[in-house]
Design a protein around this nucleic acid. Structure first.
Lengths: 246, 246
DNA sequence: AACTATTTTAAACAATTGTTTAACTCGGTG
DNA sequence: CACCGAGTTAAACAATTGTTTAAAATAGTT
């Protein structure tokens, strides 16, 4: 019964069309509404195939979802083979990395459903998540760390580089994950003028450079640590970002 | 029919218990599994009330959810009235703000379901989202901006302060939203040693201070802008954070 | 053409969903 | 006591869900 589908998937001998149509249609829909809110009937209606097709070709609704994720991954790996911005000054490289990160996060294109899908995986990981991270995110993260290491004149311990790298990633991804909040916090006019990809990548790159350049960051680190002894724990539970203050 | 419930809710005359029990039980469950994956029967079974109770007291499943959100909000507003860390040097204040932000993000307590619930609202906003942001997040965001303004010696334009503030918020919230990825990217030993609330708040505060202190950030800004002319757009679509590079 | 394997189809499946109904209990008031 | 409104209950509601079935259609081979 389902063995047919398995053989079909592995050898990919047939080009019947229904499997591919289903695979192509499911991506944007899953990305738009999330796994739970998408029904098999909705997918099959969009793909103009029978309701039983997903069960036959993918065995399961989750099987279709996993196939979609894997398809996106392979397609991206094939489309973006290797970037070769190896030899240039680290300041420029870090700007490029940040810029690429942001252009993937801030959605403007129409084919953004791939990023939306991956972001959903990041926010609520499933079984596919771990392999996805290892294949796609870890290498880029390592590239970011290498650049940061080259950027800082002095030798930094690994955990320090990781912290800086996560600061970069955090700043960038927030514009995707917290876009709803940003839309409220920042007026639209200001957003359009100073929160485009160019302005933001320059800003984040500047922050990163200022933080990593020289030992001044560590110097501040020590200056701050003096404050960190007693008085903080007392106010620790008094206020929070989620609480009103006015 | 539902008028009873409405009157009951407004005047809060009766203390029947089922409404309150439902309200208390629903919070953690919604936070744990999300709105969609929670069934009315599951909630009523946990609260040991009849299935029709939610329809009677809240009119709707969504009504119960909105009541839970509002309950959390009011409870937090009541519990944290006003923090009075007004007069102290801005370096210490920014550290306190970051620290509070992080302690809310990195979940260690058992009563973290409130934050989890709010984070779910941030990620996938519903109707309750906007009022929630205006009541809770906007004031704290303003406090952050005020501190940043005091921190920078020179006068910065508003959009600049907003960018810095979002950098702070982004770095902090990433440890909550991207925790799944961090768990993979950073080894566990390193995470336990250098990614606790204390270390991270010092790190983020140091980054923020280094970025806002003096005009050096802007100086870098200009230095970077020179790079930003032509060559970027060419490599714009070549690689991405999601793509492998090795 | 006949047979086989593979794919598609319409229909029904069983389970679960949110919501509603109508009877019922209880407490207080005339 | 009778009455009434508020609250609770069990049952059923209609709708939708993912999944399966068994027959029909298609393609490929001898």
């Amino acid at each position: 019964m389902k063995d047919h589908a398995r053989i079909n998937r592995e050898t990919s001998m047939t080009e019947s069309g229904t499997r591919e149509r289903l695979l192509c249609v499911a991506g944007p829909i899953f990305a738009a509404h999330g796994y739970d809110r998408v029904t098999i009937r909705e997918l099959c209606a969009a793909a103009e195939v029978n309701i039983a097709s997903v069960g036959y070709h993918f065995g399961d609704k989750m099987g279709l979802y996993r196939a979609v994720i894997q398809c996106v991954r392979e397609q991206r790996l094939r489309r973006f083979p290797d970037s070769d911005n190896e030899r240039s000054d680290p300041e420029k490289r870090i700007l490029l990395i940040i810029r690429n990160l942001l252009s993937r996060m801030i959605s403007e294109d129409e084919s953004d459903w791939e990023i939306q899908l991956l972001i959903r995986e990041i926010q609520r990981p499933t079984q596919v998540f771990e392999t996805m991270v290892h294949e796609c995110f870890v290498p880029q993260f390592q590239l970011l760390i290498d650049t940061l290491e080259e950027l800082s004149q002095e030798k930094l311990p690994k955990y320090r580089l990781d912290q800086f790298a996560l600061s970069v990633v955090g700043q960038c991804t927030y514009y995707a994950m917290g876009s709803g909040m940003i839309r409220i916090l920042i007026p639209e006019a200001e957003r359009e003028d100073h929160f485009d990809i160019d302005s933001l990548s320059v800003h984040i790159a500047a922050v990163t450079l200022a933080a990593t350049r020289g030992g001044q960051a560590l110097e501040h680190d020590e200056a701050i640590r003096k404050h960190l002894s007693a008085p903080i724990t007392t106010e620790r539970k008094q206020s929070s970002f989620f609480e009103s203050n006015a």
